[in-house]
Amino acid sequence: MKVKNKEPLLSLENLTVAFGGLVAVSDFSLQLFSGDLVGLIGPNGAGKTTVFNLITGQYRPTKGRVIFQGKDITGFSPDLVTTVGIARTFQNIRLFGNLTVLENVLVSFHVRLQSSFLAPMFSLPSYWREEKAIRREAYDLLEAVGLADVTKEEAQSLPYGEQRRLEIARALATHPSLLLLDEPAAGMNPQETRELMEFIKKMRDDFNLTIFLIEHDMKVVMGICERIAVMDFGMKIAEGTPEEIRNNPRVIEAYLGVED
């Protein structure tokens, strides 16, 4: 167990969001600490992705706060959330399909660009120096995730597994300290899933990340997550180590139903 007396990296405080009469997430609280690898599991429609959307600013919570590195980021727009150091991937892959693999990653560097738009319009050398630097960094990153030999391919032409990896690479390029992965293993066979989970663990260590991942297959997260939160009907019903979760009667109930 990690020592929990330090400041949490991300702290979700009583997050609640309602769409009309439907309460999608209700009173959700959770703390993530630097270096954590935490899983968020739950049946379909439990509100897992909604929690991610609340953290990244896609939705604004009806109630509650999102505190990141001690700063209240509730209601920040998604691009601002990215700049403070939270990156994400999507459940249904959202790559820039017609752009190349390299360009997909380069987009993430744009937010830190120093030059004004006039510099490339007038082909100023200062712009080209910057472009060269970010290209080198993007290549290195693609090398690290094992996509170095497909940099010039269109993103939409990649096989499924590589698209998933490209999405992670693209998120890493924003220099996050917290990475949110929304069902990274969706649509993969057990072998691919195992490889991906190893990859995610390696990324966390190599890039000094904190990872928060959604998965609806319980077996997948049990292997790699140190801590798991379980959601059902928009509420957190359990939190603990994989061992605790596995034996928690409420979790079993949520996944298997109640015996009459």
Binding site: T56, Q58, S77, P78, D79, T82, T83, A87, R88, F90, R94, L95, F96, G97, N98, L99, E103, L106, V107, S108, F109, H110, V111, L113, S115, F117, A119, P120, M121, F122, S123, Y127, E130, E131, I134, R170, A171, A173, T174
Partner: peptide, 28 residues
């Protein structure tokens, strides 16, 4: 010049997928 630059890539990213572009830090 603009289209081939980082700004052009950001604009194309908006065209390809607004949600993803915004999530990568592009101010739409």
């Amino acid at each position: 010049g603009l289209v081939n630059s980082s700004f052009g890539r950001a604009l194309k990213a908006i065209r390809e997928n607004e949600v993803a572009a915004e999530a990568m830090g592009v101010n739409l």
